[in-house]
């Protein structure tokens, strides 16, 4: 059951990701991104991480994608803006090289053995809100606080770069 869920979600996620980068219309890319996010959320559900599953749906598939669509609408980006040669010879060469490298890494990773199995049974509360809260506010407190700073910097940056009338 888990394997079926994993493979179907994985295929959907990768296909949607390919659509995100290959569509000419930004709106189509945004919709593909939403599909990709939902597939990822389902993967989280399969990994017994219910909290991440809900957050992924609410924040990423919901809020973030809506904002992206908002911006696309506001800027009125049509296909016209993105016309022009999407693929040049240099780009083709570079992506071929990147694909070869990626494939080599992948093969090496697969050939060297499967990832470790999860050690033992999961604790009863694994992936729940309470256990995640415990981890964030004890063991991972420093990264958590730094994340807050990074978000603050992002907000300041948006104001600095986008404020009118200067």
């Amino acid at each position: 059951m888990n394997a079926i869920l994993f493979w179907s979600c994985a295929v959907v996620a990768v296909t949607a990701a390919l659509f995100v980068i290959s569509r000419r219309s930004p709106l189509a890319s945004a919709v593909a991104l939403a599909v990709n996010m939902v597939a990822l959320a389902a993967l989280f559900a399969g990994l017994s991480a219910p909290f991440l599953f809900i957050i992924q749906l609410l924040v990423y598939a919901g809020a973030v994608v809506v904002f992206i669509v908002f911006v696309i609408m506001l800027l009125n980006l049509g296909e016209e803006e993105t016309r022009g040669a999407l693929v040049s010879r240099g780009k083709l060469l570079a992506s071929a090289l990147a694909c070869c490298l990626g494939l080599a890494l992948l093969l090496r990773a697969v050939a060297a053995g499967t990832p470790r199995e999860a050690a033992g049974a999961l604790p009863a509360d694994f992936g729940g809100i309470e256990s995640i809260g415990q981890e964030i506010f004890t063991r991972w407190l420093l990264p958590f606080e730094v994340t807050g700073l990074i978000l603050l910097v992002g907000i300041v940056g948006a104001v600095v770069l986008a404020k009118r009338g200067e």
Binding site: V146, L149, I150, V153, V160
Partner: peptide
């Protein structure tokens, strides 16, 4: 790795913004 990555982002994002000041 986690705090390393966050340090990397905290140092980079302000510099991206300042480059376009």
């Amino acid at each position: 790795l986690l705090s390393l990555f966050l340090g990397l982002e905290l140092l980079s994002i302000p510099v991206y913004i300042l480059s376009g000041f």
